[in-house]
């Protein structure tokens, strides 16, 4: 057993990374009601790219964030234009996007399997195995860098959404799509931007994932359900809810992991999801009508 404070430290550190991983899911759902089931598949793809960059080009995963971000941003805009724009105006739009992204996830999984086989991978930068000790507490060095990077990116995203014209337009579209149109927001363009940002967050999370957790192509299913669980807990489409949900569930999962063993830590998320659906289906920060 680890001490309570130690669990809290590790949990919050982990939660920061989970928040970054899930924020894009929340953003794309909030802005356009697209539930992107391929989000984690793109994240794992990002992890493979970061792994490659380290193995072949000796680029540190923390540096490959700068490659993955723009790369996945552009990929996101292209995918949005090709795949999601044609669905606009379709009745039962969310359902259609869900099936579409499900197909996309399977497609990427197969391609990753063909390229990199099903073997577990883990990028191994120099800091991955070291730990920092503060008195009676410790924190793995890699985890600390990943958390710092996540927080930095999340704060930058927050600043963008709060303080810039385009960021405000994204929030406006999330809150009231028609009203956004009325004040002259070109909502299709804003949607493409938001989808690109969501994908970019998947890409940069992949860089962090590459050295934090072992991964293989099929692993993205576990990730997507973990991330969706905390999005549902926070309230679908609420960005602040996603961050709070990530911190809460990460701490809970670290606790479960230390009490019952790491095997059961993913179960924390599933159990939390069922509990939320039972007690407060709209989540912590969600509005009634989901």
């Amino acid at each position: 057993m680890t001490s309570g404070l130690q669990i809290l430290i590790l949990g919050l550190a982990l939660g920061g990374v989970y928040a970054l991983m899930a924020i894009g899911l929340s953003l794309t759902y909030g802005v356009m009601r697209i539930l992107n089931l391929a989000h984690a598949a793109f994240m794992v793809l990002g992890a493979y790219l970061a792994y490659w960059a380290l193995q072949i080009l000796h680029i540190d995963p923390l540096v490959s964030i700068l490659i993955n971000g723009p790369l996945f941003f552009i990929l996101g805009i292209v995918l949005y234009r090709i795949l999601f724009v044609p669905l606009a105006g379709r009745s039962r739009y969310t359902e259609a996007t869900l099936l579409l992204s499900f197909g996309l996830a399977l497609g990427i999984e197969g391609i990753m399997g063909a390229m990199w086989t099903g073997i577990y991978r883990l990028a191994n930068p120099s800091y991955a195995t070291r730990s920092l000790v503060f008195g009676s507490f410790y924190i793995p060095e890699g985890q600390m860098y990943a958390t710092a990077a996540s927080l930095g990116i999340l704060i930058a995203l927050w600043g963008f959404l709060q303080k810039t014209r385009l960021g405000r337009a994204i929030r406006a579209t999330m809150q009231n799509r028609t009203a956004a149109q009325i004040v002259g927001v070109h909502v299709e363009r804003i949607s493409a931007l938001a989808f690109g940002l969501g994908m970019a967050s998947a890409g940069v999370s992949g860089s962090l994932l590459s050295f934090l957790f072992p991964f293989f192509p099929g692993k993205h299913w576990q990730w997507i359900s973990i991330l969706l669980s905390l999005v549902v807990l926070g309230g679908m489409g609420s960005l602040i809810g996603t961050v709070v949900g990530a911190l809460m569930l990460a701490v809970a999962s670290v606790y479960v992991s230390s009490a019952l063993g790491p095997t059961w830590s993913p179960a924390t998320f599933y159990a939390a999801l069922f509990l939320v659906l039972m007690i407060r289906p709209q989540g912590l920060f969600g509005k009634r009508e989901v």
């Binding site: 299913w221 359900s225 669980s229 549902v232 069922f274 659906l277 039972m278 289906p281």
Partner: peptide, 24 residues
């Protein structure tokens, strides 16, 4: 009874979670 309390996409999320939980 639990998973279908909400409308829309929360259901599909809960079925993925159910699958992975059963696996575990």
């Amino acid at each position: 009874l639990v998973a279908l309390r909400t409308r829309g996409p929360a259901f599909v999320i809960s079925t993925i979670a159910l699958l992975l939980l059963a696996q575990l």
